[in-house]
């Protein structure tokens, strides 16, 4: 279970942390614990896998990666494992997930691909196809962003 202190820590770290020379010290003071306690809790949450990382999230299109395609693959179940691992090894893929299928949605493996333009994204997909042997796929491009925000848990 998540303790009240951990919830409080999550609430301070789910948004922007202060860009000062001593952000952890500053946040610890606000939370009402010592910096050492805060760093210990964060390390413990990281060990438990609750905290993936503290880091910077980029607006990738502003950093030059203006094209992102959601590539959806139709993979026989006994080949999902292998194909998923191969796709995950591509640096251009940020997210690789297996998801369920429906009669009107037959694609069960997803890889989010990033490039400076669509040709680059399509090139990555072709290379993935060649390496995995999966040829049935489709790339869905986003044409409009309605929302992109971090989750606020507490």
């Amino acid at each position: 279970m998540i303790s009240d202190l951990d919830k409080k820590i999550v609430s301070y770290f789910q948004g922007d942390i202060p860009l000062t020379l001593t952000p952890y010290e500053d946040l610890a003071r606000e939370i009402g614990i010592t910096e050492e306690e805060l760093l210990d809790r964060l390390a413990a949450l990281e060990t438990k896998g609750v905290l993936r990382r503290v880091g910077a999230l980029l607006a990738h299109y502003r950093a030059g990666y203006s094209s992102n395609g959601m590539c959806a693959w139709r993979v026989p179940l006994d080949r999902v494992e292998e194909a998923g691992r191969i796709m995950a090894s591509f640096p251009q893929a940020s997210h690789v997930y297996q998801r369920p299928v429906y009669s009107d949605w037959p694609f069960n493996l997803f890889s989010m691909l990033h490039g400076t333009n669509r040709e680059e994204v399509e090139g990555v997909a072709r290379e993935m196809s060649k390496r995995t042997g999966i040829s049935d796929y489709t790339i869905l491009y986003s044409t409009r962003e309605f929302k992109k925000a971090g989750m606020r848990y507490y």
């Binding site: 279970m1 998540i2 999550v10 770290f13 789910q14 948004g15 922007d16 942390i17 860009l19 964060l42 438990k48 896998g49 609750v50 905290l51 993936r52 990382r53 503290v54 880091g55 910077a56 999230l57 980029l58 607006a59 502003r62 950093a63 992109k148 971090g150 989750m151 848990y153």
Partner: peptide, 17 residues
């Protein structure tokens, strides 16, 4: 705006969501 956020990324499932 090149950095969208400096903060933590949590595993929502491990938080019970």
């Amino acid at each position: 705006g090149i950095i969208r956020r400096v903060g933590a990324v949590f595993d929502s499932q491990k938080l019970g969501f």
